[in-house]
Amino acid sequence: MAQATASRRSEYDRRDESAAGKGKRTVVKTDAESGLEVTAVDSIRAVDRARWNDVVRSARCGSVFHRYEWLEAIETGLGHPAKHLLVEKDDNLIGLLPNVVVDIEKTPFQRLSSAYPGFGGPVITTDIAESLSLLADAVPDLCTGRTIVHQIRGLDTDYLRYNNALRSEGYRPYRRECRFVLDLSRGYEAVKDDMSKGRRRGIRKGRETDHEIIETELTRANIERFYQSYRRVMDRVGGDIYPFSFFEALRGMESRVLLLTLRIDGEYAGGCLQLLDEERNAVHGFFAAIPREYYDDHASELLYDSVIQWGLDHGYETYDLGSTNASFEDGVYRFKEGFGGQPIPILVWERGCSPLWPLVRAGRSLYWPHHFD
Protein backbone atom coordinates (compact mmCIF):
# COMPACT_ATOMS: atom_id res chain seq x y z
CA MET A 1 0.00 0.00 0.00
CA ALA A 2 2.86 2.40 0.79
CA GLN A 3 4.26 1.83 -2.70
CA ALA A 4 0.86 2.47 -4.28
CA THR A 5 0.46 5.68 -2.30
CA ALA A 6 3.88 6.87 -3.42
CA SER A 7 2.88 6.15 -7.02
CA ARG A 8 -0.33 8.13 -6.62
CA ARG A 9 1.54 11.09 -5.14
CA SER A 10 3.94 11.05 -8.08
CA GLU A 11 0.92 11.27 -10.36
CA TYR A 12 -0.32 14.30 -8.41
CA ASP A 13 3.12 15.87 -8.77
CA ARG A 14 2.94 15.45 -12.53
CA ARG A 15 -0.52 16.99 -12.61
CA ASP A 16 0.67 19.91 -10.53
CA GLU A 17 3.46 20.55 -13.03
CA SER A 18 1.00 20.50 -15.92
CA ALA A 19 -1.26 22.94 -14.05
CA ALA A 20 1.53 25.28 -12.94
CA GLY A 21 0.12 28.65 -12.02
CA LYS A 22 -3.41 27.27 -12.10
CA GLY A 23 -3.70 26.08 -8.50
CA LYS A 24 -2.27 23.41 -6.27
CA ARG A 25 -3.45 20.04 -4.99
CA THR A 26 -3.16 18.76 -1.45
CA VAL A 27 -4.09 15.24 -0.37
CA VAL A 28 -6.10 15.69 2.84
CA LYS A 29 -7.71 12.29 3.52
CA THR A 30 -7.13 8.70 2.47
CA ASP A 31 -8.91 5.43 3.24
CA ALA A 32 -6.74 2.38 2.65
CA GLU A 33 -9.66 -0.03 2.98
CA SER A 34 -11.83 1.58 0.31
CA GLY A 35 -8.98 2.92 -1.80
CA LEU A 36 -10.51 6.41 -1.75
CA GLU A 37 -8.48 9.58 -1.57
CA VAL A 38 -9.70 13.14 -0.98
CA THR A 39 -7.73 16.01 -2.43
CA ALA A 40 -8.18 19.76 -1.90
CA VAL A 41 -7.55 22.23 -4.73
CA ASP A 42 -7.35 26.01 -4.39
CA SER A 43 -8.55 26.72 -7.92
CA ILE A 44 -10.99 25.07 -10.29
CA ARG A 45 -8.24 25.41 -12.90
CA ALA A 46 -6.20 22.77 -11.09
CA VAL A 47 -8.70 20.19 -12.37
CA ASP A 48 -9.30 19.03 -15.90
CA ARG A 49 -12.57 20.58 -17.14
CA ALA A 50 -13.80 17.42 -18.86
CA ARG A 51 -13.15 15.17 -15.84
CA TRP A 52 -14.97 17.61 -13.53
CA ASN A 53 -18.02 18.01 -15.76
CA ASP A 54 -18.24 14.24 -16.40
CA VAL A 55 -18.87 13.74 -12.67
CA VAL A 56 -21.47 16.53 -12.66
CA ARG A 57 -23.30 14.91 -15.58
CA SER A 58 -23.16 11.42 -14.07
CA ALA A 59 -24.08 12.17 -10.46
CA ARG A 60 -27.72 12.28 -9.40
CA CYS A 61 -27.51 15.73 -7.80
CA GLY A 62 -25.34 17.43 -10.43
CA SER A 63 -26.55 20.79 -11.76
CA VAL A 64 -25.40 23.81 -13.74
CA PHE A 65 -24.19 25.28 -10.43
CA HIS A 66 -21.72 22.42 -10.03
CA ARG A 67 -20.26 22.81 -13.48
CA TYR A 68 -16.66 23.89 -14.00
CA GLU A 69 -17.68 27.02 -15.91
CA TRP A 70 -19.97 28.39 -13.17
CA LEU A 71 -17.34 27.83 -10.48
CA GLU A 72 -14.69 29.41 -12.69
CA ALA A 73 -16.90 32.50 -13.09
CA ILE A 74 -17.26 32.74 -9.29
CA GLU A 75 -13.52 32.40 -8.82
CA THR A 76 -12.41 34.80 -11.54
CA GLY A 77 -15.35 37.21 -11.57
CA LEU A 78 -16.03 37.51 -7.84
CA GLY A 79 -12.63 36.64 -6.44
CA HIS A 80 -13.99 34.16 -3.89
CA PRO A 81 -11.13 31.86 -2.81
CA ALA A 82 -11.79 28.27 -3.88
CA LYS A 83 -11.32 25.24 -1.64
CA HIS A 84 -12.79 22.41 -3.69
CA LEU A 85 -12.62 18.78 -2.58
CA LEU A 86 -12.19 15.86 -4.98
CA VAL A 87 -12.74 12.15 -4.32
CA GLU A 88 -10.75 9.71 -6.44
CA LYS A 89 -10.62 5.95 -6.58
CA ASP A 90 -7.93 4.17 -8.56
CA ASP A 91 -7.12 7.51 -10.19
CA ASN A 92 -10.75 7.92 -11.30
CA LEU A 93 -12.61 11.05 -10.21
CA ILE A 94 -15.86 9.87 -8.57
CA GLY A 95 -16.94 12.76 -6.35
CA LEU A 96 -16.81 16.53 -5.87
CA LEU A 97 -17.60 19.02 -3.14
CA PRO A 98 -17.14 22.54 -4.55
CA ASN A 99 -16.43 25.22 -1.91
CA VAL A 100 -15.69 28.94 -1.87
CA VAL A 101 -14.95 31.27 1.02
CA VAL A 102 -17.40 34.16 1.45
CA ASP A 103 -18.08 36.77 4.13
CA ILE A 104 -20.75 36.26 6.77
CA GLU A 105 -22.83 39.41 6.62
CA LYS A 106 -22.76 41.76 9.60
CA THR A 107 -19.72 39.96 11.09
CA PRO A 108 -15.93 39.97 10.62
CA PHE A 109 -16.02 36.22 9.93
CA GLN A 110 -16.27 34.02 6.85
CA ARG A 111 -17.98 30.81 5.88
CA LEU A 112 -16.92 28.00 3.61
CA SER A 113 -19.88 27.68 1.26
CA SER A 114 -20.86 24.96 -1.20
CA ALA A 115 -21.49 27.11 -3.12
CA TYR A 116 -22.34 30.79 -3.43
CA PRO A 117 -23.81 32.35 -5.44
CA GLY A 118 -26.02 29.50 -6.54
CA PHE A 119 -26.17 26.05 -5.02
CA GLY A 120 -23.71 23.27 -4.32
CA GLY A 121 -23.27 20.23 -2.11
CA PRO A 122 -21.59 16.90 -2.82
CA VAL A 123 -21.94 15.19 -6.18
CA ILE A 124 -20.85 11.56 -6.01
CA THR A 125 -21.16 8.82 -8.61
CA THR A 126 -20.22 5.71 -6.59
CA ASP A 127 -19.05 4.62 -3.12
CA ILE A 128 -21.43 7.26 -1.83
CA ALA A 129 -21.41 6.54 1.92
CA GLU A 130 -17.64 6.20 2.12
CA SER A 131 -17.03 9.26 -0.06
CA LEU A 132 -19.47 11.41 1.90
CA SER A 133 -17.83 10.44 5.19
CA LEU A 134 -14.34 11.25 3.88
CA LEU A 135 -15.50 14.60 2.50
CA ALA A 136 -17.06 15.50 5.86
CA ASP A 137 -13.84 14.54 7.64
CA ALA A 138 -11.84 16.76 5.28
CA VAL A 139 -13.94 19.91 5.72
CA PRO A 140 -12.48 21.10 9.08
CA ASP A 141 -9.02 21.15 7.49
CA LEU A 142 -10.30 23.83 5.09
CA CYS A 143 -11.76 26.07 7.81
CA THR A 144 -8.90 28.19 9.12
CA GLY A 145 -8.49 31.72 10.45
CA ARG A 146 -11.74 33.69 10.19
CA THR A 147 -13.57 30.84 8.44
CA ILE A 148 -15.78 29.41 11.18
CA VAL A 149 -18.55 27.40 9.52
CA HIS A 150 -19.21 25.17 6.52
CA GLN A 151 -22.52 25.63 4.70
CA ILE A 152 -24.09 23.38 2.07
CA ARG A 153 -26.85 24.90 -0.10
CA GLY A 154 -28.66 22.09 -1.89
CA LEU A 155 -30.48 22.95 -5.10
CA ASP A 156 -33.56 20.79 -4.60
CA THR A 157 -35.17 18.10 -2.52
CA ASP A 158 -32.92 15.42 -4.04
CA TYR A 159 -30.44 16.52 -1.40
CA LEU A 160 -32.71 15.15 1.32
CA ARG A 161 -31.11 11.80 0.56
CA TYR A 162 -28.01 13.10 2.35
CA ASN A 163 -29.80 14.60 5.37
CA ASN A 164 -29.22 11.79 7.87
CA ALA A 165 -25.62 11.32 6.82
CA LEU A 166 -24.92 15.04 7.11
CA ARG A 167 -26.56 15.30 10.52
CA SER A 168 -24.49 12.37 11.76
CA GLU A 169 -21.40 14.37 10.74
CA GLY A 170 -22.48 17.39 12.80
CA TYR A 171 -24.41 19.40 10.18
CA ARG A 172 -27.61 21.15 11.26
CA PRO A 173 -30.44 22.13 8.87
CA TYR A 174 -31.13 25.83 8.44
CA ARG A 175 -34.13 27.20 6.55
CA ARG A 176 -34.70 30.82 5.60
CA GLU A 177 -35.36 30.95 1.86
CA CYS A 178 -37.42 29.21 -0.78
CA ARG A 179 -37.79 29.05 -4.55
CA PHE A 180 -40.89 29.05 -6.72
CA VAL A 181 -40.79 26.38 -9.42
CA LEU A 182 -43.17 26.15 -12.39
CA ASP A 183 -43.92 22.77 -13.94
CA LEU A 184 -43.60 23.49 -17.67
CA SER A 185 -44.37 19.91 -18.68
CA ARG A 186 -48.10 20.69 -18.26
CA GLY A 187 -48.09 23.18 -21.12
CA TYR A 188 -48.59 26.93 -21.30
CA GLU A 189 -52.33 27.09 -20.69
CA ALA A 190 -52.11 25.01 -17.51
CA VAL A 191 -49.27 27.18 -16.22
CA LYS A 192 -51.21 30.34 -17.03
CA ASP A 193 -54.38 29.02 -15.35
CA ASP A 194 -52.46 28.68 -12.07
CA MET A 195 -51.33 32.31 -12.12
CA SER A 196 -53.07 34.91 -10.00
CA LYS A 197 -55.53 37.28 -11.66
CA GLY A 198 -53.01 40.08 -11.18
CA ARG A 199 -50.24 38.24 -13.04
CA ARG A 200 -52.55 37.25 -15.90
CA ARG A 201 -53.83 40.82 -16.15
CA GLY A 202 -50.26 42.15 -16.16
CA ILE A 203 -49.31 39.83 -19.03
CA ARG A 204 -52.41 40.84 -20.97
CA LYS A 205 -51.80 44.56 -20.44
CA GLY A 206 -48.12 44.17 -21.29
CA ARG A 207 -48.95 42.51 -24.58
CA GLU A 208 -50.99 45.57 -25.54
CA THR A 209 -47.83 47.71 -25.58
CA ASP A 210 -45.58 48.13 -28.61
CA HIS A 211 -42.86 45.77 -27.45
CA GLU A 212 -40.45 43.07 -28.54
CA ILE A 213 -38.37 40.57 -26.56
CA ILE A 214 -35.13 39.45 -28.13
CA GLU A 215 -32.83 36.55 -27.31
CA THR A 216 -29.58 38.50 -27.05
CA GLU A 217 -26.04 37.39 -27.81
CA LEU A 218 -23.73 37.45 -24.81
CA THR A 219 -21.37 40.10 -26.15
CA ARG A 220 -19.52 42.51 -23.89
CA ALA A 221 -21.64 45.42 -25.17
CA ASN A 222 -24.91 43.62 -24.46
CA ILE A 223 -23.74 42.59 -21.02
CA GLU A 224 -22.68 46.18 -20.25
CA ARG A 225 -26.12 47.48 -21.20
CA PHE A 226 -27.84 44.88 -19.03
CA TYR A 227 -25.42 45.54 -16.17
CA GLN A 228 -26.08 49.28 -16.15
CA SER A 229 -29.78 48.63 -15.69
CA TYR A 230 -29.13 45.88 -13.12
CA ARG A 231 -26.90 48.19 -11.09
CA ARG A 232 -29.51 50.95 -10.99
CA VAL A 233 -32.16 48.50 -9.81
CA MET A 234 -29.94 47.11 -7.05
CA ASP A 235 -28.94 50.61 -5.94
CA ARG A 236 -32.60 51.51 -5.62
CA VAL A 237 -33.57 48.45 -3.55
CA GLY A 238 -30.37 48.42 -1.49
CA GLY A 239 -29.28 44.97 -2.66
CA ASP A 240 -25.79 43.56 -2.98
CA ILE A 241 -24.32 44.36 -6.39
CA TYR A 242 -22.18 41.78 -8.15
CA PRO A 243 -19.25 43.33 -10.03
CA PHE A 244 -19.29 43.58 -13.79
CA SER A 245 -16.36 41.15 -13.90
CA PHE A 246 -18.70 38.34 -12.78
CA PHE A 247 -21.17 38.98 -15.60
CA GLU A 248 -18.34 39.14 -18.09
CA ALA A 249 -16.97 35.85 -16.75
CA LEU A 250 -20.31 34.21 -17.58
CA ARG A 251 -19.37 34.51 -21.24
CA GLY A 252 -17.24 31.42 -20.55
CA MET A 253 -20.48 29.42 -20.23
CA GLU A 254 -22.43 31.17 -22.97
CA SER A 255 -24.27 28.02 -24.04
CA ARG A 256 -25.76 27.80 -20.54
CA VAL A 257 -26.88 31.44 -20.32
CA LEU A 258 -30.06 32.98 -21.74
CA LEU A 259 -30.09 36.79 -21.95
CA LEU A 260 -33.40 38.32 -22.98
CA THR A 261 -33.78 41.99 -23.86
CA LEU A 262 -37.08 43.86 -23.73
CA ARG A 263 -37.80 46.89 -25.90
CA ILE A 264 -40.92 49.04 -25.51
CA ASP A 265 -41.69 51.66 -28.13
CA GLY A 266 -38.25 50.92 -29.56
CA GLU A 267 -36.42 51.79 -26.31
CA TYR A 268 -34.42 49.47 -24.06
CA ALA A 269 -36.77 48.49 -21.21
CA GLY A 270 -34.64 46.01 -19.29
CA GLY A 271 -33.89 42.34 -19.50
CA CYS A 272 -33.26 39.14 -17.60
CA LEU A 273 -30.42 36.66 -17.40
CA GLN A 274 -31.31 32.99 -16.91
CA LEU A 275 -29.16 29.89 -16.41
CA LEU A 276 -29.90 26.79 -18.46
CA ASP A 277 -29.55 23.63 -16.39
CA GLU A 278 -29.42 20.72 -18.80
CA GLU A 279 -28.48 18.36 -15.96
CA ARG A 280 -31.84 19.11 -14.25
CA ASN A 281 -33.76 20.06 -17.43
CA ALA A 282 -34.56 23.41 -15.85
CA VAL A 283 -34.33 27.14 -16.51
CA HIS A 284 -33.14 29.12 -13.49
CA GLY A 285 -34.08 32.77 -13.12
CA PHE A 286 -31.04 34.53 -11.73
CA PHE A 287 -30.82 38.25 -12.58
CA ALA A 288 -33.52 40.66 -13.69
CA ALA A 289 -33.08 44.35 -14.45
CA ILE A 290 -36.27 46.34 -15.07
CA PRO A 291 -36.00 50.16 -14.96
CA ARG A 292 -38.67 51.68 -12.76
CA GLU A 293 -40.09 53.80 -15.59
CA TYR A 294 -41.33 50.61 -17.29
CA TYR A 295 -43.19 49.13 -14.32
CA ASP A 296 -46.50 50.53 -15.55
CA ASP A 297 -45.87 48.80 -18.89
CA HIS A 298 -45.78 45.46 -17.02
CA ALA A 299 -42.23 44.79 -18.17
CA SER A 300 -41.63 42.19 -15.45
CA GLU A 301 -44.69 40.14 -16.39
CA LEU A 302 -43.72 40.30 -20.05
CA LEU A 303 -40.23 38.98 -19.36
CA TYR A 304 -41.35 36.17 -17.05
CA ASP A 305 -44.00 35.13 -19.54
CA SER A 306 -41.42 35.15 -22.32
CA VAL A 307 -39.07 32.88 -20.35
CA ILE A 308 -41.94 30.46 -19.69
CA GLN A 309 -42.70 30.25 -23.39
CA TRP A 310 -39.00 30.00 -24.30
CA GLY A 311 -38.58 27.11 -21.85
CA LEU A 312 -41.59 25.32 -23.31
CA ASP A 313 -40.34 25.83 -26.87
CA HIS A 314 -36.93 24.38 -25.97
CA GLY A 315 -38.20 21.35 -24.05
CA TYR A 316 -37.34 22.31 -20.47
CA GLU A 317 -39.47 20.71 -17.76
CA THR A 318 -39.29 23.39 -15.06
CA TYR A 319 -38.77 27.10 -14.64
CA ASP A 320 -37.22 28.09 -11.32
CA LEU A 321 -38.11 31.72 -10.63
CA GLY A 322 -35.22 32.09 -8.20
CA SER A 323 -34.73 32.56 -4.48
CA THR A 324 -36.76 34.68 -2.08
CA ASN A 325 -37.22 35.01 1.66
CA ALA A 326 -39.78 32.47 2.87
CA SER A 327 -42.27 35.06 4.13
CA PHE A 328 -45.64 36.11 2.73
CA GLU A 329 -44.81 39.64 3.91
CA ASP A 330 -41.90 39.84 1.45
CA GLY A 331 -42.77 41.67 -1.78
CA VAL A 332 -40.59 39.43 -3.94
CA TYR A 333 -42.21 36.35 -2.41
CA ARG A 334 -45.71 37.63 -3.22
CA PHE A 335 -44.74 38.65 -6.76
CA LYS A 336 -43.27 35.24 -7.61
CA GLU A 337 -46.09 33.44 -5.83
CA GLY A 338 -48.45 35.12 -8.27
CA PHE A 339 -47.01 33.08 -11.14
CA GLY A 340 -48.44 29.95 -9.55
CA GLY A 341 -45.25 28.04 -8.90
CA GLN A 342 -44.70 25.48 -6.18
CA PRO A 343 -42.76 26.91 -3.20
CA ILE A 344 -39.73 24.70 -2.55
CA PRO A 345 -37.61 25.26 0.59
CA ILE A 346 -33.93 25.83 -0.06
CA LEU A 347 -32.15 23.07 1.81
CA VAL A 348 -29.20 24.36 3.80
CA TRP A 349 -27.00 22.53 6.29
CA GLU A 350 -24.38 24.18 8.50
CA ARG A 351 -21.54 22.77 10.55
CA GLY A 352 -19.54 24.90 12.92
CA CYS A 353 -15.77 24.61 12.62
CA SER A 354 -14.79 27.04 15.38
CA PRO A 355 -15.73 27.74 19.03
CA LEU A 356 -16.85 31.16 17.77
CA TRP A 357 -19.60 29.74 15.57
CA PRO A 358 -22.23 29.21 18.33
CA LEU A 359 -21.90 32.88 19.28
CA VAL A 360 -22.32 34.07 15.69
CA ARG A 361 -25.22 31.68 15.18
CA ALA A 362 -26.96 33.00 18.29
CA GLY A 363 -26.45 36.59 17.14
CA ARG A 364 -27.89 35.78 13.72
CA SER A 365 -31.22 34.86 15.29
CA LEU A 366 -31.58 38.47 16.44
CA TYR A 367 -31.83 39.85 12.91
CA TRP A 368 -33.27 36.72 11.21
CA PRO A 369 -35.74 35.66 13.90
CA HIS A 370 -37.87 33.48 11.64
CA HIS A 371 -35.26 30.92 10.63
CA PHE A 372 -35.68 27.44 12.03
CA ASP A 373 -33.69 24.24 12.41
Rank of each mutant, 00 (worst) to 15 (best):
S185C: 03
A138K: 00
R231D: 05
D313C: 11
A19N: 10
L96M: 04
S354W: 06
G62T: 01
L135V: 01
D158P: 01
R364P: 09
I223N: 00
S58I: 11
Y304P: 05
V307C: 02
S168H: 06
W70D: 07
L134D: 02
S300H: 13
R256D: 15
R175T: 13
E248N: 13
P243F: 03
Y116G: 00
A20N: 08
F246P: 00
P117M: 09
D210N: 14
Y367E: 10
A190Y: 09
T157Q: 12
S114H: 08
D277Y: 00
Y316I: 08
R251D: 11
Y68M: 13
A362Y: 14
G352P: 03
A129Q: 13
N99D: 06
M195D: 05
T219A: 07
G285P: 02
P355I: 13
A362R: 12
C272S: 09
L96K: 04
R225A: 12
C61F: 08
D277L: 00
H150F: 01
H370C: 10
G62I: 05
T219Q: 05
A138V: 04
E301K: 09
L218I: 11
R14D: 11
V149M: 11
L132N: 03
E293A: 03
R361S: 15
I264C: 00
V123R: 02
T324C: 15
G202E: 15
N92M: 08
D42Y: 03
Y171L: 03
G238K: 07
V123I: 03
N53M: 11
F246N: 04
R225E: 12
T126H: 08
H314T: 04
D305H: 08
G311N: 10
L135S: 01
R251Y: 09
P343C: 11
L160S: 08
D330V: 12
L250T: 03
K24W: 07
Y316D: 11
A20R: 14
R186A: 15
G206E: 11
D137S: 07
D103F: 08
L218M: 09
G62W: 02
D373V: 14
T318R: 01
R231E: 10
L135E: 02
R175W: 06
E278D: 05
G154D: 05
R351T: 14
A288H: 11
M253K: 09
W349N: 01
V100H: 15
I152W: 12
S131A: 09
I290N: 01
E350M: 12
L260M: 09
L36F: 01
C178R: 08
P369S: 10
R146N: 13
D373I: 13
E37W: 07
V181E: 10
H284S: 01
R225C: 03
Q110C: 13
G315K: 07
D210W: 09
E267W: 00
S18Q: 15
D313N: 13
S131H: 05
S10L: 15
L218H: 02
R364N: 14
D305F: 08
H370K: 15
V191K: 07
A82S: 13
